[in-house]
Design a protein around this nucleic acid. Structure first.
Lengths: 265, 265
DNA sequence: CGGGAGGTTGACAATCGTCAATCAGAGTGG
DNA sequence: CCACTCTGATTGACGATTGTCAACCTCCCG
């Protein structure tokens, strides 16, 4: 159930130049929150870091690990989860390219949950002092990182409401909407058509349901024409408004800019 | 259901001195996260602010409000909640003395949920530019505020797991534990004996249950000797370990210092 | 071709929700 | 001091969404 925390260190990047930095996805993500000048951009791309290639299912961070560095996802998908006493797992967040998967560890000192790769991918480990340093030396970068933490929090709150007060059908439709927009913004797909990176069991762990019920609910959404699925993992959204209505979805909590595809279509 | 957002502005404090500042509770809370020097302390206490007295149930912030200021709770209790399409409410956070109830608004620009007083109390409104200014001029203050945001996020994650993967009995016991510790740290009570500030209906909205089921579960916890209740709202914890075990509670996610009462007893 | 992970389905069980009635306590006005 | 009222707590009967168990299927890969 818990594969070893095996990782291969591949690249150490300390080049004095921006071009070709492995941290490009991080810059892209942070640029989304604040307008940077050349110094900001260069400082981000030149952050000292270690790139690791991780295989499917391998752990980036384990609960109670002491945190010496913050971790940015460069490619692939990762999840953050907690295990409760009954042995059940709750996925608390899903991360994609360019996102910090454990920025909080830089400030809080230890991990209060685990982070695991969902697919093969690469991550960059940045020493925690460097994160703090850049945040306070370059206020725009600091603001962007703080904003990122706060949007993270906003998503958690929506998940609390989603899991606490919506039924299975609404809950899953809501998650499908969130994914659609986040993948679009991350440049990983069209919002009307994407490949779900989670298995149905993982979807269940993310929504507080069981895989059996997730399966039934997806089938039902398909029967009702809310989504279409050419294969088990593919999600085709014929009518965005119908899905958004079904999922009681309002994108405000993602704090996206206004090219919000929820409004187009 | 939604009482008017009526508020009485009571005090405008811009005194040049620390002593007697209404922001003492904020300083106390932020001091918990970082060591401040005299300049830090003075800057916090001298933040320009407006104090408002709010009555029971009145709103501090409504969803979609534009945020011009951040709001610190000076006394009383407040909740943050979201309403879903079915009309049901989910409480996503409960706040006590000294806590920012909407720090995220300072950075994100608008409120993605509502904040409501649970009891009568006072809040201080601090202009958002002042928050940003102090955060970057005084890095220790900035670190403390960032840490505060991140601990907020950590609590949300635990709530996701609590609501998503624990049964009613465990879920409620967990919340009772969280309260016990947070009230203690805020200096608002003994961890073995406190007055629950939520009604059973509000407890239900916080745990994703119904008030009827909360009532039954509390009764059951009492019958089993996990808690004692001299009145409906009073919580008496005879055996902390028993309650913590019942609630699958590990205080790590609160990121408290080590005088953690969970370890005593 | 065998094995394994993930998806699908049905039968049945149970936790939790709904509805509705009653009760207890606090505050109010006569 | 006592009806009156309102909010919140309590309890029972019943219903339903969701979980559990278990089988089988499908696809991918070595």
């Amino acid at each position: 159930m818990l594969p070893p925390k095996c990782q291969r260190e591949t690249v150490v990047n300390k080049s004095g130049y921006n071009q070709g930095s492995a941290l490009e996805p991080l810059l892209h993500k942070l640029s989304y929150w604040r307008k940077f000048d050349e110094a900001d951009r260069r400082a981000i791309l030149n952050l000292p870091h270690v790139v690791k290639s991780l295989e499917h299912n391998h752990y980036i961070v384990r609960e109670f690990d002491r945190a010496e560095s913050a971790c940015v996802l460069l490619s692939g998908f990762a999840i953050r989860h907690k295990i409760v006493a009954s042995g059940h797992r709750q996925i608390v967040a899903i991360h994609m390219k360019g996102e910090f998967v454990d920025l909080q560890n830089s400030m809080l000192g230890f991990a209060d949950h685990s982070v695991q790769m969902l697919t093969p991918g690469k991550v960059a480990m940045i020493p925690r002092q460097e994160i703090e340093r850049i945040a306070f030396e370059l206020p725009q970068v600091g603001r962007a990182m703080w904003t990122d933490s706060l949007v993270d929090g906003s998503i958690f709150r929506e998940w609390v409401a989603n899991i606490g007060r919506r039924d299975a059908r609404t809950r899953i439709a809501h998650l499908l909407c969130e994914f659609s927009l986040r993948l679009k913004v991350a440049g990983l797909g069209e919002h009307s058509n994407y490949e779900m990176p989670l298995t149905q069991e993982q979807l269940a762990d993310a929504t507080g349901l069981t895989s059996v019920h997730v399966n039934r609910t997806l089938k039902q959404l398909q029967r009702d024409g809310v989504i279409d699925r050419s294969s088990p993992r593919s999600i085709v959204i014929g009518d965005w408004k119908k899905l958004a209505d079904t999922g009681d979805f309002n994108s405000a909590y993602l704090h996206l800019h206004d090219e919000d595809p929820a409004l187009a279509d």
